[in-house]
């Protein structure tokens, strides 16, 4: 394990997380109405006295500096506050929803990365041919489609017309499955959302892989490999595709945030109880502490995914030494 590299990367992540934490504080400050207003509106009961008492209790009557201090100390002890809508600690609510989103996001990153490499590699290898044209045009069109619409189209086709796959959710209700059957049931439910999320972000990887393949095809080392009379298969895989993978891997990390953002609408469309749908629920119920917690948790997820991707990059590119960040090597 490259511990020094990990240490450096964590060090880089600290200022980012601090800035986001401060930003989230000010976001909450500019909000009209506060948690007490939302709470009273939700419960439909209470008077001015109760409101004042709750504000005192939540520390909402203090000065800006004191409020910030309270916020910072609570955050330092991982206390994200109390969710108004769920009447439970925010951290608890997020923790129950996060695993589903990680599964959705992780699978979508893998699927779109793999598909992008295969299709982009094929397009770049057969540059100018019918395969290249088909793949490039398809990627362009997919890129222009909103994710939630693609998801609804998938539902219309596969769940309503063909009835092959379930409409939504992450498991058959009341089916009481175990073992392999339970896993298969989850896979069946995640097929459409993962596919939709992966396809919406596919275009970027196809483009990158195609361009990098073409660049590698024109490179000196590929020419040298040809001159040595190596078989075409080996040249395409080892001399063209392997170096072309690197920018795609970097982009997978950079796009982690976009994927997480995209999962908001995808989870809403497919009724998946994850972090994305939770953020929608937080917005519709004006649960600001929960929304703030989701922003912080989402940022943390992106940071962690980026570090994992950088570790993967180091394994793929032997040239990267200690302390060099993959994302900085390639602008």
């Amino acid at each position: 394990m490259p511990w020094r590299f990990l240490g450096r990367r964590l060090q880089q992540a600290v200022p980012v997380l601090l800035i986001v934490a401060v930003g989230v504080f000010f976001l909450l400050e500019i909000a009209e109405g506060d948690a007490v207003d939302a709470y009273l509106a939700a419960t439909g009961a209470g008077d001015a006295g109760l409101a004042a008492q709750l504000r005192e209790q939540y520390g909402l009557t203090d000065t800006l500096a004191t409020r910030f201090l309270t916020y910072a100390t609570r955050l330092a002890t991982l206390d994200l506050g109390h969710s108004v809508a769920f009447d439970r600690p925010v951290l608890e609510v997020i923790a129950t929803r996060l695993p589903v989103t990680l599964m959705l996001m992780g699978s979508a990153i893998l699927v779109s990365g793999a598909l992008g490499v295969i299709l982009g590699g094929l397009a770049g290898w057969r540059r100018g041919g019918p395969a290249d044209l088909t793949i490039t045009v398809t990627a362009l069109i997919l890129n222009a489609m909103p994710g939630f619409w693609l998801g609804l189209l998938a539902i219309i086709l596969f769940a309503v017309k063909l009835r092959w796959l379930p409409l939504g959710g992450i498991g058959s209700i009341g089916a009481d499955l175990s073992g392999l059957a339970a896993v298969l049931d989850t896979v069946r439910h995640l097929l459409l959302p993962v596919g939709t999320l992966a396809l919406t972000y596919l275009a970027l990887y196809v483009r990158l892989m195609r361009a990098a393949m073409i660049e590698a095809a024109d490179s000196g080392w590929t020419l040298a490999a040809r001159a040595r009379g190596l078989p075409e298969r080996g040249i395409v895989l080892r001399h063209m595709a392997r170096p072309a993978l690197l920018p795609v891997v970097t982009m997978l990390g950079l796009q982690a945030g976009a994927m997480l953002g995209g999962s908001v609408v995808i989870e809403t469309v497919f009724a998946i109880p994850g972090l994305g749908r939770l953020s929608f629920e937080a917005v519709t119920q004006r649960d600001l502490p929960l929304l703030a917690g989701i922003l912080l948790a989402g940022t943390l997820v992106v940071v962690v995914v980026n570090i994992l991707i950088d570790l993967l990059y180091r394994r793929l590119d032997p040239r990267v030494g200690d302390g060099v960040r993959a994302t900085e090597r390639r602008p």
Binding site: L27, I30, L291, V302
Partner: peptide, 24 residues
């Protein structure tokens, strides 16, 4: 640049969603 990096790290759509819900 740290601020830029921070904004880029927050999932774009989550940030937009939070801003609209806070601003109206």
């Amino acid at each position: 640049m740290r601020v830029t990096e921070a904004v880029q790290t927050i999932p774009t759509f989550l940030l937009a969603l939070a801003l609209v819900s806070v601003l109206g």
